[in-house]
Amino acid sequence: MDQNPVNRCIEVWILTGFLGAGKTSTLNHWLGQPIFKSTSLALIINEFGKLGVDGKQLTPGTYHTFEINKGSVFCICTRTDLLKAFHSIAFDLKPDHVIIEATGIAQPADLEALLSDPSLRDYFRIKVIACVVDAEHFIKTAAFSTPCVSQVQWADTVAINKSDLVPESQIAKLKAILSGLNSDAVIHTISHGALAPAGLQHMTHRPRTHSPVESPPDGIIAVALHTDQTLCKARFMETLSRLSDHVLRLKGNVAFDTGTCFIDVVFDRIDYKEANSRLGQHPTSFTVIGWDIPRDQLISAFESCWHI
């Protein structure tokens, strides 16, 4: 390492995204690219509950891999092991690049804070934080998992993966939602994790100063609604239509005045099925994932359907 560490910081590429979004596919894609094949590289794999799996899936290469106490629910274990890995990389391996595949439940703020530790900050520089988003499932996970939203908000670039599995209209809607969460991020649409690192090389990481998300923002909200009353189907459908820009998903049993059914709304598409008897003691029991609408307004809009 250079005598003056500031002159030769190791570039850190951080891959975030919820479990199953396609981070490992993206990582494998990166490992096959010239930028990483022609330089020295270390990997830090820090995925929740996948020990041994990711290690076997990785494209073979000359890189050194650190597997961080994956599956541990204690953030402290991960933090301690991450520190050890970074120290080993900075003082022993001294590669040109580090790629971190962060755990799906990681708060990127924590990683950024760790790299700003006095013992590390002169040796590492975050090149880019790339968040991989599952085109099919992002809405569902974002509504319930706070890190899922943080990861988008702290990203320099967001890759909508598995875009081949959903209609164009949904991709467009998802792009709008992701831009709403992070207007500075460059959004890519990809399949099979094919996010080209060459396209990220010119990027400069923008450090964030706000706190990590500790509650799903008003942007994406999940509301569970239950009632024993019968709902007016016409009013319910009118409500859905009126809120079409704000209701991303809706799922559950609804006891309409025309009969009870299981309803599944995906953006503009509505599917009806036979009522699910496992959904509890209330005839009407459904969950709505809303976007860009106050929680109270979303609740009162649907409650108006049974307060007739």
């Binding site: 499932h137 999940a222 559950g252 496992r278």
Partner: peptide, 24 residues
């Protein structure tokens, strides 16, 4: 909740929407 994650994995976050009764 932590034990539920041990038993079900992070699928539990999607289950909260897809199968809330199962999560309960």
């Amino acid at each position: 909740f932590t034990l539920a994650l041990h038993l079900r994995g992070t699928n539990i976050f999607m289950d909260m929407f897809d199968d809330p009764a199962g999560v309960h």
